[in-house]
């Protein structure tokens, strides 16, 4: 039986009528058309589907849609403002921290949480912070440098 779930997606109120057994990832991508959030493993291993819920990082493939009732969900599409890339996105571009790009949205959402929770993270804290995001191109070094370049800056 379908259930109605009301939540905020990148600041915009959404009301969806869906099967409760569906995941947040599935609803974001298929019903709401925001495909920036990637489905990699679907098992909570790769972090490609990382979104922020009330500011905290989650694997959206593991979150049943009724769990986000009333919550604020932020995806990669919610970062750019007025056509301007978010400072984290710009840092990833500047540092060449993108290879195939599949892990990038999830990496950037994890980076956003890392920097919001701790504006001056050490390299170790950055590496621990992205430990739930796999980069199949193995381009971790530049990703760590991109996030590190924002230490102490407003994000």
């Amino acid at each position: 039986m379908k259930t109605t779930v009301c939540f905020f997606l990148n600041g915009e109120k959404q009301v969806v009528k869906v099967e409760p057994s569906r995941t947040l990832l599935d609803v974001i991508r298929k019903d709401l058309g925001l495909t920036g959030t990637k489905k990699g493993c679907g098992d909570g291993d790769c972090g490609g589907c990382t979104v922020l819920i009330d500011g905290m990082p989650y694997n959206s493939c593991l979150v049943l849609i009724p769990k986000v009732e009333g919550k604020e969900v932020t995806t990669i599409e919610g970062l750019a403002e007025n056509g301007q890339m978010h400072p984290i996105q710009q840092a990833f571009v500047n540092h060449g921290a993108i290879q195939c790009g599949f892990c990038t949205p999830g990496m950037i959402m994890s980076a956003k949480y890392i920097l919001n929770a701790n504006p001056k993270p050490t390299e170790k804290e950055i590496r621990q912070g992205i430990s739930g995001n796999l980069c199949r191109c193995t381009g971790y070094q530049k990703i760590v440098e991109a996030i590190g370049s924002l230490a102490g800056k407003e994000v």
Partner: peptide, 9 residues
Amino acid sequence: LGSPQVRNL
């Protein structure tokens, strides 16, 4: 346990 994302859930 798991990863930061898994630990939040």
